[in-house]
Nucleic acid binder design. Sequence first.
DNA 1: ACCTGAACACCGTTCAAGT
DNA 2: ACCTGAACACCGTTCAAGT
Lengths: 250, 250
Amino acid sequence: MCQSSEVTTRTRRSQRRTEALSRERIVEAAVELLDAAGEGGLTFRALTERLATGPGAIYWHVANKDELLGAATDAVVAAALAVGPTGPPDPPQDGVRAVALGLFDATDEHPWLAAQLSTRLSRGPWASVTPRIFESVGRRVRALGVPEGDWFTATSALVHYILGAVGQNAANTANARTLGPDTNRAGFLDSASRAWEELDPDDYPFVRAVAKQLRDHDDREQLLAGVDFVLTGITARHLPGGQAHTPPAT
Amino acid sequence: MCQSSEVTTRTRRSQRRTEALSRERIVEAAVELLDAAGEGGLTFRALTERLATGPGAIYWHVANKDELLGAATDAVVAAALAVGPTGPPDPPQDGVRAVALGLFDATDEHPWLAAQLSTRLSRGPWASVTPRIFESVGRRVRALGVPEGDWFTATSALVHYILGAVGQNAANTANARTLGPDTNRAGFLDSASRAWEELDPDDYPFVRAVAKQLRDHDDREQLLAGVDFVLTGITARHLPGGQAHTPPAT
DNA sequence: ACCTGAACACCGTTCAAGT
DNA sequence: ACCTGAACACCGTTCAAGT
């Protein structure tokens, strides 16, 4: 943003630490490093420099790098899901959409988040992000009137879809940045689309046919469209004639 | 399987290479290492030992570790998707289910695959696995009668969901192994379920309510149920009354 | 209890040199 | 064209020592 990157980078090193070291401060610094340089940017060396300390000090507060990454992920997700829990309860479908968009925006701000989310999800149901997301989505599923026996299956389907789609979006923006500051997101999708068009016509007829749709699609719209597919499928099963679209045909 | 693990491990080192080194052989060895010890097991040192060569030789055939991981992923996915393309064309819904189960089984055999799939997917639409999976699913979407303008959205939704669900399953089996050879998959889900039950009742009422379903669920059934949600959503949009379940109520 | 910083083991990658 | 293997830069982590 501002032009004095030299100063901002240097400052902290020689600056005497004002606050004592704490797990919170470490996680905060980790998120900053991740935001600035991606997953590769988080090293204990960069962290010690930024916090003006040694590696041993960090290990006093945090077990290892994996735990630190997990804590950073959890902090960001918790903030993303803390959107408007107050106020009149949404229609459940809108609530699910809000959760999806919240995670969408969070990965937009923190491009490293998507990969972490799938990694953590894959680490087992006890990683702290998993219950968090499950709870947010699941409450809406319950409010939807889904019978209790299907809560887990329905919620899982929504969570899997949302995280997959959100990850895809994060990838697109992250990649656009990789191609250089001049290349924007549209430019990235454009070149990706061209790559699809150059695939073998015999092996990839379908992919070639949708190459243009890849270029022109809007990730946010697509995310919501997919959420609606799943919501429709969930409600159709039990509420005959149930549609995900709350407003009738207008 | 057999009891002579000592021999199998040692053998290759001193054994003179019979075939010349090739990209294929390297990828094959990489898959074996990944299968045996997970993603951490694939190092250039382990690879050189197994192939009885030096690192430089490997770099002659492969650009870097990332490309090697990508090639390993692609090889395994290609094999998984090569299920019954011959024979009479399936009903599209069955075809989608077959693709999902094919990937499910592949990640069961190669637990490292799931993380790679999401990583690759996240790397942009040109990673070779992406077109492959998109093509497999997309052909079925097209056969479903979805209007062309929605092909991309519908296929994306299915692919995102399938990969998410498949990844979750891979995580469960992989984690079960981590807990020790005596702990089986049921044991793992059991302890995970107990962890959910111990969450704060105020913060996680829903998660606690579905803890038992987590323990008792069958990943394969759940995968198919989710696929049906998405399929129903997709078809409901355009084919009024269209259901994912091909057989009527029997 | 909390922090320091040198040291360790290990990793991906390079490259001059061989055949 | 293909392979060798020593060397390099960098990483996560440890630990005896300080306060």
